[in-house]
């Protein structure tokens, strides 16, 4: 089953106004990062390489707030989404 189809099953309320609750503290760090683990450890594929800008892009609207990226990389500024936004599981 494709990840895209799984993400479709999850309830999200995206904070269009507040924007991303995730950020990269220093993007120049990514350029010299060899593992680039954010690209594969995230269960929801939030982090992707933006080939044009040559940087990591963040699809925060697919984030389930697990915290794996935060534990994996010190360069990620990790916050909770604003109250009521983000993932909302049906089963849990």
């Amino acid at each position: 089953m494709r990840l895209e189809d799984k993400l479709y099953l999850i309830g999200f309320k995206v904070d269009e106004v507040g924007g991303s609750h995730l950020a990269i503290k220093d993007k120049s760090t990514c350029l010299v990062c060899e593992m680039k683990q954010c690209l594969y450890v995230c269960p929801c594929g939030v982090y992707e390489i933006d080939e044009i800008k040559n940087e990591i892009s963040i699809n925060y609207d697919a984030c389930v707030e697990c915290g794996t990226c935060r534990v994996s990389c010190d360069d990620i500024d990790w916050r909770y989404p604003r109250g009521g936004f983000g993932v909302s599981y049906k089963f849990g």
């Binding site: 089953m1 799984k6 993400l7 099953l9 999850i10 269960p43 929801c44 389930v64 697990c66 915290g67 794996t68 534990v71 599981y89 049906k90 089963f91 849990g92």
Partner: peptide, 9 residues
């Protein structure tokens, strides 16, 4: 049929 996909630490 998968009903939900979840992740947690």
């Amino acid at each position: 049929e998968t009903k939900e996909y979840l992740a947690h630490m």
